[in-house]
Computed example of a mutant assay.
Amino acid sequence: MHLHDDIHNYYEKMLLEEIINRKLYDQYNDDVMADLCCTVLNQLPSRYIRSDIDMAFYLSTTERVHMQQRVATAIDVAISQVAKKASINE
């Protein structure tokens, strides 16, 4: 069975936006970033969608802000767990 290529977790998009905003790729190598992303996404609920446009239409401003806050908090936790551990191992 093959799922449609457009199906994705909306939190992945939000995570990437926050990574860009924080310029985390400038601070961590690819291995740390991969671990960081996995750690963040494992803290968040799944929110699978087919189209970002549909999500933008149906998502209230309050819910979007709440989701952004969850992503920011999950990134902070992941940095404290993954990035600090990686710097110790270097």
Results as ranks from 00 to 15, higher is better:
residue 70 R to N: 14
residue 65 V to G: 00
residue 25 Y to N: 12
residue 45 P to K: 10
residue 25 Y to C: 09
residue 16 L to V: 01
residue 73 T to Y: 13
residue 9 N to L: 04
residue 66 H to S: 13
residue 32 V to M: 04
residue 69 Q to I: 04
residue 57 F to V: 13
residue 2 H to Y: 08
residue 1 M to C: 09
residue 39 T to E: 15
residue 44 L to V: 09
residue 27 Q to T: 03
residue 82 V to S: 06
residue 65 V to P: 00
residue 17 E to Y: 02
residue 19 I to Q: 07
residue 72 A to V: 01
residue 84 K to P: 00
residue 44 L to T: 12
residue 31 D to K: 08
residue 8 H to C: 08
residue 10 Y to C: 02
residue 90 E to N: 14
residue 58 Y to W: 08
residue 5 D to M: 04
residue 7 I to N: 06
residue 60 S to E: 12
residue 55 M to Y: 05
residue 76 D to I: 01
residue 14 M to V: 06
residue 61 T to K: 13
residue 68 Q to V: 04
residue 49 I to K: 03
residue 62 T to D: 13
residue 66 H to C: 05
residue 48 Y to N: 14
residue 19 I to C: 07
residue 12 E to A: 02
residue 60 S to D: 11
residue 63 E to S: 12
residue 53 I to W: 05
residue 87 S to R: 13
residue 89 N to R: 12
residue 1 M to W: 11
residue 32 V to N: 01
residue 11 Y to K: 02
residue 64 R to D: 10
residue 48 Y to C: 04
residue 90 E to C: 11
residue 60 S to H: 05
residue 27 Q to W: 01
residue 84 K to R: 12
residue 66 H to Y: 11
residue 86 A to D: 14
residue 70 R to I: 03
residue 20 I to A: 15
residue 23 K to G: 11
residue 31 D to W: 00
residue 15 L to T: 14
residue 52 D to K: 11
residue 14 M to F: 05
residue 20 I to P: 00
residue 58 Y to R: 11
residue 17 E to V: 07
residue 4 H to G: 02
residue 79 I to G: 06
residue 51 S to C: 12
residue 84 K to F: 08
residue 59 L to Y: 00
residue 44 L to C: 11
residue 36 L to W: 01
residue 61 T to E: 14
residue 51 S to R: 13
residue 69 Q to V: 06
residue 36 L to S: 05
residue 67 M to A: 13
residue 85 K to V: 00
residue 77 V to Y: 09
residue 4 H to F: 10
residue 88 I to P: 01
residue 71 V to S: 03
residue 40 V to N: 07
residue 33 M to S: 05
residue 85 K to A: 13
residue 11 Y to A: 03
residue 19 I to P: 02
residue 50 R to C: 07
residue 13 K to S: 10
residue 16 L to Y: 14
residue 7 I to Y: 11
residue 14 M to N: 01
residue 10 Y to S: 05
residue 34 A to I: 08
residue 8 H to N: 07
residue 18 E to V: 13
residue 44 L to G: 09
residue 50 R to Q: 09
residue 51 S to M: 07
residue 69 Q to T: 08
residue 78 A to E: 05
residue 50 R to H: 08
residue 33 M to Q: 11
residue 52 D to S: 15
residue 53 I to Y: 12
residue 56 A to N: 14
residue 42 N to C: 07
residue 41 L to D: 03
residue 74 A to H: 02
residue 6 D to E: 15
residue 38 C to W: 07
residue 56 A to F: 07
residue 64 R to H: 13
residue 86 A to P: 04
residue 50 R to Y: 14
residue 48 Y to G: 00
residue 79 I to D: 04
residue 69 Q to F: 02
residue 46 S to V: 08
residue 3 L to Y: 13
residue 90 E to I: 09
residue 49 I to P: 01
residue 86 A to E: 11
residue 39 T to G: 03
residue 4 H to W: 06
residue 32 V to A: 09
residue 68 Q to A: 11
residue 16 L to C: 02
residue 37 C to E: 14
residue 26 D to V: 03
residue 89 N to K: 11
residue 16 L to K: 12
residue 26 D to M: 12
residue 10 Y to D: 01
residue 29 N to P: 12
residue 5 D to L: 08
residue 36 L to E: 03
residue 62 T to G: 06
residue 48 Y to A: 02
residue 51 S to H: 10
residue 75 I to A: 06
residue 86 A to Q: 12
residue 87 S to Q: 12
residue 35 D to T: 00
residue 76 D to F: 02
residue 18 E to Y: 02
residue 67 M to N: 07
